[in-house]
Amino acid sequence: MKRNKINEMKVIFDSKSENESLARYICAAFCATFDPTVEALADIKCTVSEAVTNCVVHAYRDTVGKIYMTLKAYDDATVTVSIRDRGCGIDDLSRAREPLFTTDAAGERSGMGFPIMESLSERFSVTSKPQRGTQVNMTFKLDKNSKR
């Protein structure tokens, strides 16, 4: 079934840690049109927080760069979130996606960012090029029928 895009939003912001909450609240507000459940909203906020934190902590490790977030809403009550950076990229993607793998144990990173994004989203993909950047794409289903 063909779905139609009903809304779109692009936000560009600095890779500063205070923008982690900003990004997830923007995303939550964007999703409000579908009147999602508290739980569905919590899942989306968590995945956005993980993706943006990756940009802040890893992609632009010792510098501040731009984070590009694109939100799209479709008439079948799905929302897609894409979060992209022009940072250092990921050398070994399959390793980065392993649970508990982290390159920053000293910073008390749990190594659960990618596994959480994968489990909480309907669809998940990540592409990365060393020295070019990383892009995470996630799809969420906000079907009202699933409302508690």
């Binding site: 968590c46 927080s49 993980e50 934190t53 008390e108 990173r109 749990s110 659960m112 960012g113 959480i116």
Partner: peptide, 13 residues
């Protein structure tokens, strides 16, 4: 009200 994997790191730490 909200926790992501940074909270896990905080707990385990």
């Amino acid at each position: 009200a909200f926790m992501d994997s940074s909270g896990l790191g905080l707990i385990l730490g």
